[in-house]
């Protein structure tokens, strides 16, 4: 099918997010989900998927959603850490899909840490 310039731009926008994942930009905000056995058993997989989906839907640039091994506090899994260049790392615990989407909206978009989800608030 022949494409117009508008269609070319639409493909570009749709595909940009895909390619974005492959950038090696160390200035990116990194969302790291603990995906060791403990994390996966506690439901980290749908949490990771929710992050990827929400970041894509909002077309957030310069955000990398990555996974890591056991973070060490297995009883609080799923654990998600957010690294922003020049800021303290924020650790969220017992994250579920809804919380994941909230974290994207509040923390990544509105720049407000959701204190009650963080490790500091956990007992």
């Amino acid at each position: 099918m022949k494409k117009s310039i508008e269609e070319l731009n639409a493909i570009r926008e749709r595909m940009k997010q895909t390619i974005q994942m492959r950038s090696d930009n160390s200035n990116n905000v990194r969302v790291v989900v603990g995906m060791a056995t403990c994390g996966i058993a506690a439901g980290a997989r749908p949490v990771l998927a929710a992050f990827v989906d929400e970041v894509n839907r909002r077309q957030l640039k310069n955000v990398t959603v990555a996974q890591t091994g056991c973070i060490g506090v297995c009883r609080l899994e799923p654990i998600v850490e957010i690294y922003e260049p020049g800021k303290e790392k924020v650790t969220y615990v017992k994250v579920d899909e809804n919380k994941a989407r909230m974290i994207v909206a509040e923390h990544l978009v509105n720049q407000r840490v959701i204190e009650e989800y963080t490790i500091g608030a956990a007992k």
Partner: peptide, 14 residues
């Protein structure tokens, strides 16, 4: 071709 387009492919031609 879509991946090439994602990285600004064919923008220069347009």
């Amino acid at each position: 071709i879509d991946e090439y387009i994602a990285n600004d492919g064919y923008q220069a031609l347009a």
